[in-house]
């Protein structure tokens, strides 16, 4: 039985002469967190953008749950089960935290194109949104306008938006950037729970968090995967030390 839910083969993208991603092949198995690490400018975020469909690939293929989604656009990929967070928080600034989550629930509950029914009459949507806010520990901030949330709260809200979609896979782009210790711990616990339903492809610079969470780690440098393996294997890999970590790991 194929235990891979996401399978990316030879994905490439060039901007002029510059190859941002160079024949990257990577997969994501059920119930796992696969971390993608590498220096800034290595092509991690471009890879995420190629997977979600906002950056067109030059070559390669993407299979999600045994379905070829290579030629689908970004909205179709989101509908089919790819949910993401952005490297720089991307929320609906003038909506409250609760409304942001409700927005994310609309498509899954097939209510986006209800033109004349009052939104407030959809009490199920709001109660489900509150449950998600509870999970990301923002329930008491539900009525706050999103632009007034702190940086860390916005990162959590982004994860909440992704959770609300109940996707097949999560693609998280530096979700812990700027979080304090408590926030990071909360995220680690949350990710360990949600990976059981939907696996996570995680880009993260916080190595402690990566090593605490990841089942597998791939290292990307200059658009190429230079190493891939378990946390133990990556920690022991001298190439990874040379090109990225740059320090001895104990």
């Amino acid at each position: 039985m194929n235990n891979k839910i996401l399978n990316i083969t030879n994905l490439s993208k060039s901007f002029g002469a510059f190859k941002v991603t160079d024949e990257i092949s990577i997969d994501l198995k059920f119930n796992e967190i696969h971390a993608l690490i590498g220096p800034n400018g290595a092509g991690k975020s471009t890879l995420i953008k190629q997977i979600v469909g906002t950056v067109k690939h030059d070559m390669g293929s993407i299979i999600l749950d045994q379905e070829d989604i290579t030629d689908l656009n970004d909205v179709e990929r989101a509908k089919i089960g790819i949910s993401r967070t952005f490297q720089v928080s991307s929320i609906i600034p003038k909506f409250t935290a609760l409304e942001n989550i409700v927005l994310s629930l609309l498509e899954r509950s097939q209510k986006t194109f209800q033109l004349f029914k009052s939104l407030n009459s959809n009490s199920k949507l709001f109660s489900e949104a509150k449950e998600i806010l509870l999970q990301i520990e923002l329930e008491d901030r539900r009525k706050v306008i999103a632009s007034e949330l702190s940086h860390g709260e916005r990162r959590k809200l982004e994860v909440g938006l992704a959770l609300a979609m109940k996707p097949k896979v999560f693609l998280f782009d530096e979700p812990m950037a700027g979080l304090d210790e408590t926030g990071t711990k909360m995220m680690i616990n949350l990710f360990q729970r949600i990976k059981l339903n939907s696996p996570i492809l995680l880009i993260e610079h916080d190595m402690d968090a990566v090593f605490a969470l990841a089942d597998r780690v791939s290292v990307i440098v200059y658009g190429k995967i230079v190493a891939s393996g378990t946390v133990k294997e990556i920690k022991a890999n001298p190439i990874v030390h040379d090109v990225y970590l740059g320090y001895e790991i104990t």
């Binding site: 909205v75 993401r84 909506f95 004349f116 939104l119």
Partner: peptide, 29 residues
């Protein structure tokens, strides 16, 4: 009033503010 206070109205007003985010949650903007 009916339109802007409906689920569709929410998607519309969100699209005005951040279309990329709205697309990322699967809504055809």
């Amino acid at each position: 009033s009916k339109l802007i206070n409906s689920p569709y109205g929410m998607a519309l007003q969100a699209t005005k503010q951040n279309e990329e985010r709205v697309k990322s949650v699967g809504i055809e903007t």
